[in-house]
Simulated scan of single mutants.
Amino acid sequence: MTPLQQDILRGLCIEDATYEQLAQRHGIAMGEVAAQFGAGLMILADAFEERRPWWRGPRRR
């Protein structure tokens, strides 16, 4: 996870910052805040997902 994604996740989940505040803090558009937040959430979801044995193959979504 990039430092930007970490800061956006921390800002939204812990500091209760708004997308607008984070966009101003980092000098990016609010849409980019949303994109980075989503990317960070996907990284966290993958980190917490139970790993399947190699012989079972990948999960289908």
Rank of each mutant, 00 (worst) to 15 (best):
G38A: 01
R51C: 07
G11A: 07
R60Q: 12
I43L: 10
I8W: 12
W55I: 00
M1E: 12
E49F: 14
L12A: 15
T2V: 02
E32C: 00
I43A: 07
R56E: 08
E32F: 02
E50A: 13
E15S: 12
M30N: 00
T18S: 12
L9F: 11
I28E: 05
Q24I: 01
P3E: 14
C13Q: 14
R56Q: 10
L12Y: 13
P3H: 14
A45V: 07
R59M: 06
A39V: 00
G27P: 02
D7P: 08
M42Y: 11
I43K: 05
W55R: 01
D46F: 11
Q21C: 05
A17M: 07
Q6I: 10
E50P: 06
Q36I: 01
E50V: 11
G11Q: 10
W54Y: 11
W54H: 10
L44P: 01
E15V: 02
D16G: 10
I28F: 12
A34W: 12
P3C: 04
L22I: 04
F37W: 10
H26S: 03
L4C: 15
A23I: 01
I28A: 06
E49C: 14
R59P: 03
V33K: 03
Y19K: 00
R61Q: 08
R59W: 03
P3I: 09
R60M: 10
L22E: 02
P53I: 04
C13F: 12
I8V: 13
I8T: 03
T2N: 13
L44D: 14
L9M: 09
D7S: 12
Y19H: 04
A45G: 05
F37H: 04
L12S: 11
R51N: 08
A35F: 03
L22G: 02
P53K: 10
D46P: 11
V33I: 07
I8L: 08
Y19L: 03
A23F: 07
I14Y: 12
